[in-house]
Amino acid sequence: MFIQKRFSVIDFLIYFFLILFALMIVLPVWQIIVISTSSEQVYIADKVHLVPRSFSLNEYSRALGSIGGITRSLFISIAVTVFGTCISMMLTTIGAFVLSKKDLPGRKALFGFVLFPMFFSGGLVPFYILIRTLHLSDTIFALTLPVAISTYNLVIMKNYFAGQPASLEEAARLDGCSELQILMKVIVPISMPMFAAISLFYGVAYWNDYFLATMFISSNKMYPLQVVLRQMIIQNLVLSQVGVRMESSNPEQFKMACIVIGMIPVLLVYPFIQKHFTKGIMLGAVKE
């Protein structure tokens, strides 16, 4: 896209730095993969875990077939993430759009109203009672509705909207578009990269959530993936001092397999979001 052919010193430094940074991340992740496919003896004898000396997918098949039900929890996680992200994006977009109108009377009050809970909250007990009163416990609504809006994301989006050229909106308004139409036909299309970013934030937050699920879900059948994985990975740590007998429990290889299983869906979905981050989305936009 940039018409420049020289590979300058700056380029060299940037490439070097980025590749080094990426390598620093790849190596430990590679170790995780190597450990997850090692046999017990190889795992104990090997100290570095960089070269795979044995290969077995036993731990993976054990994890996927476990009574804890990774497969079922995976579907719950997907449902929560998809439903949650949709509802979050709807509410956040509307909120951000309205608050981005600088001339809206009472905007400051509204904004303060939105900002205040970012700092002050009543804590867990009233929240728990609320969720129970609304009969949301043990449903996917308990994992989505209470966190549907992140003020943090809303503010980012609001400022992004505010930074868009006003002329586009004016033009649409002169064409007789309603506010909702302006939002859908003008704002949304030119904001695709930011939409992708914010939905990524929401999606990742829903996907990674662990706390809400442990608080508001009480049936094993409704637990999302992160709870199941986390139980497999860290459960043993919690009980360490009691020393109540727990046979062989989960070996390191199994835990690493669980970590890899948790990352695969993310890797699969990511390219679809990434493609919105490419340049030139604005090409069709009207210039001021």
Partner: peptide, 10 residues
């Protein structure tokens, strides 16, 4: 509903 109602917990 989700922010102000539970705020009595403060």
């Amino acid at each position: 509903i989700f922010c102000y109602v539970p705020m009595y917990g403060l």
